[in-house]
Design a binder for these strands. Structure first.
Lengths: 192, 192
DNA sequence: TGTACATCAGTGAACGCGCGTTCACTGATGTAC
DNA sequence: TGTACATCAGTGAACGCGCGTTCACTGATGTAC
């Protein structure tokens, strides 16, 4: 039966949040619309009152997860100097906690290899998510020139590459070694 | 009807090669057994004369693709000095050609984000593939100490991260910018 | 403010479809004598 | 070397299953008077 406007808005929000966690932990292709609705105690049919298709949800989820995770990151140690905050960013991003909890982590890292096979809307949402990640890095590695820009692109690539590889490795020793090495080297690059 | 031993061996080899291309370009979850057999002009049923399951094929494909792509890389400029060869490796790995042709490229980069959701055998095959990639980097960035090891892990993470992000971006300018920046920075790290 | 009615969030069953896997069957290949 | 037979690579249809999406239906909510 019909629900109140607040209930409707809340259901929509819950669908996005649940899908966001599921997509990041299990991948877009491995999570069905029924999985998402089932996790909320709802049935599949109702999904289409909120979204035109699964593809539409994917694009919205990427944006929501990206905004949530970058704004969380941007709030870390707001008063501190750039270098100190850079160290905090790198240590958080390449932590065992982040590695072991993709469902609450950076969507750029968890979805990057799946994106080339997704619908155009998802690719565009991902590109914006990557730009948001670059903006977070920019708050911590400021500078106007091409050199600073290149440094930020490099740091973003190293962060994502380090995290993704540490997650994919079945050897726990190699996995922590990767996190440690990439952390240390990025901080070295920054002269910290 | 029954085929000769050579025919049988060749069919098996073709299944692995075709799956290898398809998995790298479209992802494991998005390629069906029927897709692979169909691409060879065969029917699905015959697949199970060669492999116990799709999972078994995935593990074998990761190994085969990894061996093929690292041995190709190891043969580049065999006589040259390490630094020269390092530059060649970085430029090949982070080239627009490699970005635009995942089906013939590094399986570590094309499969890394899908691996956490695959069967254990695939995860182990991937870990070995990553170790092979590290061995290729080691030929070009030699050294015994923990520092050299950390440098190689960092380079591998940057290479994979740079390639994966350049592939996932729908903005062509950002994509080439990423390749260029990561290339330049890795070469800078190596003092080239 | 009270009432009659239109709206629409969510249900639950159904749709066509493609998936991984199985299986009885075929006939050329390989082998034992 | 020649022959009789067992083997098995590949066929094609079928299996149960889960997918994304649709739809007639329900009844509480929102709205128009």
């Amino acid at each position: 039966m019909r629900r109140s406007r607040e209930d409707t808005a809340q259901t929509r929000k819950k669908i996005v949040e649940t899908a966001s966690r599921l997509f990041r932990s299990r991948g877009v292709a491995r999570v069905s619309v029924a999985d998402i609705m089932g996790a909320l105690g709802l049935t599949v049919g109702g999904f289409y009152r909120h979204f035109a298709s699964k593809d539409a949800l994917v694009a919205e989820v990427i944006e929501a997860a990206s905004i949530a995770s970058t704004s969380r990151q941007a709030q870390t140690a707001p008063g501190a100097a750039a270098k100190r905050r850079a160290a905090a960013l790198v240590e958080t991003y390449l932590s065992p906690l982040h590695r072991d909890h993709p469902e609450a982590g950076c969507p750029v890292a968890s979805l990057c290899a799946e994106i080339p096979h997704e619908a155009p809307a998802a690719k565009e949402a991902f590109t914006k998510a990557l730009q948001r990640l670059l903006a977070v890095v920019a708050e911590v590695v400021p500078g106007e020139g091409a050199e600073s820009r290149a440094e930020r692109l490099f740091i973003a690539a190293s962060l994502v590459g380090g995290l993704v590889l540490s997650r994919a490795t079945s050897d726990p020793k190699l996995s922590s070694e990767l996190l440690r090495a990439v952390r240390a080297r990025i901080l070295g690059t920054l002269g910290t």
